[in-house]
Amino acid sequence: MTTMPAPRRLLTIAVLLALTGLVATGCVRFPAPESPPPTATAGPPVLPGVQVDVPVEPLPSSEACNATLTLRPPAQMPLPRQMPPNSTMAGILERGRLIVGLDIGSNLFSFRDPITGDIQGFDVDIAHEIAGAIFGDDRRVEFQVLSSAQRIDALRDMTVDVVIKTMSITCDRLRDISFSAPYYVASQRILSFRNSNVTGPAQLADKRVCAARGTTSIGRIQAIQPRATIVSTTTWADCLVLMQQGQIDAATTDDAILAGLAAQDPWLRVVGPSLGEEFYGVGIPKGQDDMIRFVNGVLERIRATGRWQEIRDRWLSILDSGYGAPQPYYRD
């Protein structure tokens, strides 16, 4: 084994000790390369489907044509799995599932549970009641997620059997589709920030107000407060995101939907008087009178048995007030 001469060993050790000391004391410096100044600034992300300055829409109405008048249920409802031959319900029974159009962005009415992944809510329970009356098994439901603007086309194309999606019964819509009797009565109000001075429609002048596209809420708020700038979105959940980003000042729709949004953010509140009533009905394709009568029979049963109140108490107890089960008015 060859050994290093003593003077050289001492020099090597001295150099190593010096380097070690420099590292330990942080005296070794490596200059960073120059960075150019930023060339852009970040803003809030833009949600897909957002539209500003929505064209003026007609004020919704259910009174001019007595829109809530509907067909009487059959005198004797068929038993599950025993639908009348050649009926709409018999076709659904043969297929093996009820196809229901709804959305998953209307908290408390139809939304996806973040833990189980199941779609649930007030509208979902109504769908299960209809499926149970046809199959004797309320789980035989296939949900198709629709935006508010897609609801009528889905019924006209018959890609769904029914739409149960906080859908207001109006004269305009009755030209394209049919409805059941009302299963819920809502009141349009305003969602604002707790520290905001917005307490009613008067304070919405020159403010940005969100509503989902294809809903009756837009026409009503434009008629009541024409100075509001309407921002339309694909879903009500998008309105919540825009509020949290500070891109809008308020949102307006039915109180039950707004309560679901407020339940997700403690900085929001539902304010103001009722801007008008909305009667929710089950949307049904034109010409399916047997299905209208059948669904009305299901709604009649859940009102009479107290099941409707159970569903309301489960999902909508957050509301400080509310109507009871709406009473049907039949035209035959």
Rank of each mutant, 00 (worst) to 15 (best):
R194V: 08
N195Y: 07
N195D: 14
S196E: 06
V198A: 05
T199R: 12
T199I: 13
T199G: 14
G200N: 04
G200F: 02
Q203Y: 10
D206F: 15
D206C: 06
K207C: 12
K207A: 11
R208A: 12
R208P: 05
A211G: 13
A212T: 12
R213T: 10
G214A: 02
T216P: 03
I218T: 15
R220M: 08
R220F: 00
R220W: 00
I221N: 09
Q222C: 08
Q222E: 10
Q222F: 01
I224W: 02
I224G: 01
R227G: 00
T229R: 15
T229H: 13
T234E: 04
T234G: 03
T235N: 06
T235R: 04
W236E: 13
A237L: 13
A237V: 03
D238R: 01
C239R: 02
L240S: 11
V241L: 13
L242Q: 00
M243C: 13
M243E: 11
M243S: 10
M243I: 12
Q244D: 14
Q245H: 07
Q247E: 12
Q247S: 14
I248N: 07
I248E: 04
D249A: 15
D249F: 02
D249E: 11
A251L: 05
A251W: 00
T252I: 03
D254H: 12
D255K: 12
I257S: 11
I257F: 01
G260E: 05
G260K: 09
L261A: 03
L261W: 00
A262T: 09
D265C: 06
W267F: 12
L268P: 14
V270T: 15
V270A: 10
V271Q: 01
V271R: 10
